[in-house]
């Protein structure tokens, strides 16, 4: 039997985090919800196997990332990436708000999907290189090179701008 109660409990606990990851990868909260929904459907289908082997969240994250990358691949060349929707705190000064956070999101959405995924999984999900490689179904070498390129692109947006430089905590391993 398919244990729907356990699945619902998992989905309720995991969806918010999955949605944040998806948002960082696509820059649109509604689209992020759509991809999380598709990812959870895939998890539901695989649920009996997952509950035996464990790793439900890792599978869900892979399913969402895969759905995002598939979507990016299928998107027609005439479709333009939508403007990033940045949530603003009412207390926050606008000039400050349009600064680093918005710049980062804009720069992220300009990256190729796999580079974007590498950055989000490494620096938001805090996955190791090996875990990112597993999540993306590629080699560790590919993760390193994609992340390196992505970081170079992101840094170029910040370097020389009034925003200041962009750093990553800890030394880069590539």
């Amino acid at each position: 039997m398919r244990d729907e109660a356990a699945f619902v409990e998992f989905a309720q606990a995991a969806s918010a985090r999955l949605r944040r990851t998806a948002y960082l990868m696509c820059g649109d909260w509604d689209l992020a919800s759509d991809h999380v929904q598709e990812g959870l459907i895939r998890v539901y289908v695989a649920w009996p196997r997952l509950t035996r082997s464990g790793g439900e969240y890792a599978y869900a994250r892979r399913a969402v990332v895969s759905a995002l990358i598939d979507h990016a691949r299928r998107r027609s060349s005439t479709e333009v990436v939508s403007e990033v929707t940045v949530e603003r705190s009412s207390e926050q000064d606008v000039a400050e708000d349009v600064s680093a956070r918005a710049a980062l999101m804009t720069a992220l959405t300009a990256l190729p999907p796999r580079q974007r995924a590498c950055v989000v999984l490494r620096y938001f999900e805090d996955l190791s290189v090996a875990q990112v490689a597993e999540a993306l179904g590629c080699s560790e070498g590919t993760v390193k090179s994609q992340t390196s390129r992505a970081l170079a692109s992101l840094r170029s947006v910040f370097d020389g701008s009034p925003l200041g430089g962009l750093v990553t905590e800890g030394a880069s391993s590539w």
């Binding site: 949605r19 960082l24 940045v86 956070r101 938001f124 990553t168």
Partner: peptide, 21 residues
Amino acid sequence: MVNELRELLRDNVASAPQDPV
């Protein structure tokens, strides 16, 4: 001024709009 990548990523999703799946 220095911007830390992890911090910026977390700040960007700190106030996610309510839209439960």
